[in-house]
């Protein structure tokens, strides 16, 4: 196995590290996207550990920075952020295809990275190149089930009511602060996207943690949020309440990497041509 550093992309503006196993050359390529604004090594170097582990199993990988994040620059094009993300991922696929001979790819994204992977996967033609995606703490919506699980135990807790009231008082005193956040895709759109992805043959792995417990608090919530697509055999869901959003503990990261590895090996097994059982 070797790692090589590349400057690549349509404007030579992207920087990434490709992990290139010696054999075989027909494996699915794994591309890991930025988790928020953290550069391509990932939170606590998680992406480095994950890609190197996958390399030892024979999967070529690319961890890279999208336009204007980490070590990558801007492409200089006039595009929406979604167009830019899709074009950057396409550039990443071209690079890994050239370097490792991959024709099919799996995207991995945590948090904002999962959102970006979703933006790529929801494209109606994504299945031509994309075999699957791993969404780590991706889209989540407060369902009725979430609210019951979240608020009922708190209903008779006087301290929580006190904190809520003081927060509300602060908010009223602060007035309307301008908000610059990007609105997430609506729940019905995301739900429809997942149905479309599985219909088009994409394999999906969703691993969520207690780190997003203000939006997601039970494994049943996958189905509550995204409907029957979550029961499709192509969809694998995991929920680990005790783990935080960025996997700050070493053993939690190991567990995550094992889960991704197990899912990859069962959905995209590597064929070792010429090797006798």
């Amino acid at each position: 196995m070797s790692e090589q550093a590349f400057r690549f992309g349509r404007a030579q503006h992207l920087v990434g590290i490709a992990g290139l196993p010696e054999q075989p050359r027909d494996a699915v390529g794994v591309i890991v996207l930025n988790a928020g604004l953290v550069h391509h090594v990932g939170p606590f170097r998680q992406t480095v550990d994950m890609t190197r582990r996958l390399n030892t199993l024979g999967y070529p990988t690319l961890r890279f920075d999208l336009s204007t994040i980490g070590d990558s620059g801007a492409s200089g094009e006039s595009q929406t952020r979604v167009q830019q993300i899709c074009a950057d991922v396409d550039d990443a696929m071209v690079l890994l295809g050239k370097q490792a001979g991959c024709r099919r790819f799996v995207l991995v994204g945590l948090c904002a990275g999962a959102e970006k992977a979703h933006q790529v996967a929801r494209d109606r033609t994504s299945h031509h190149k994309l075999g699957g995606a791993v969404f780590l703490d991706g889209f989540a919506y407060r369902t009725l089930g979430f609210k019951l699980r979240h608020y009922l135990p708190r209903l008779f807790d006087a301290r929580r009511w006190g904190r809520w009231l003081s927060r509300k008082r602060r908010e009223i005193a602060d007035g309307d602060a301008p908000s610059f956040s990007v609105a997430p895709l609506p729940q019905d759109v995301v739900s429809e996207d997942f149905s479309s992805m599985v219909e088009r043959g994409l394999k999906i792995c969703m691993i969520y943690t207690g780190g997003i417990n203000m939006f997601f608090n039970h494994r049943r919530q996958f189905r509550e949020c995204f409907g029957p697509a979550m029961n499709h055999p192509a969809v694998c869901t995991r929920y680990s309440e005790e783990i935080d959003h960025t996997y700050v503990l070493v053993d939690d990261r190991r567990r995550l990497i094992e889960q991704v590895e197990t899912w990859l090996c069962s959905n995209f097994p590597i064929t070792h041509a010429g090797v006798l059982p």
């Binding site: 790692e3 090589q4 550093a5 400057r7 404007a11 920087v15 620059g73 801007a74």
Partner: peptide, 10 residues
């Protein structure tokens, strides 16, 4: 451009 000249390597 400046970013194109920034070279990543081992």
């Amino acid at each position: 451009t400046r970013h194109e000249s920034e070279l990543p390597f081992f």
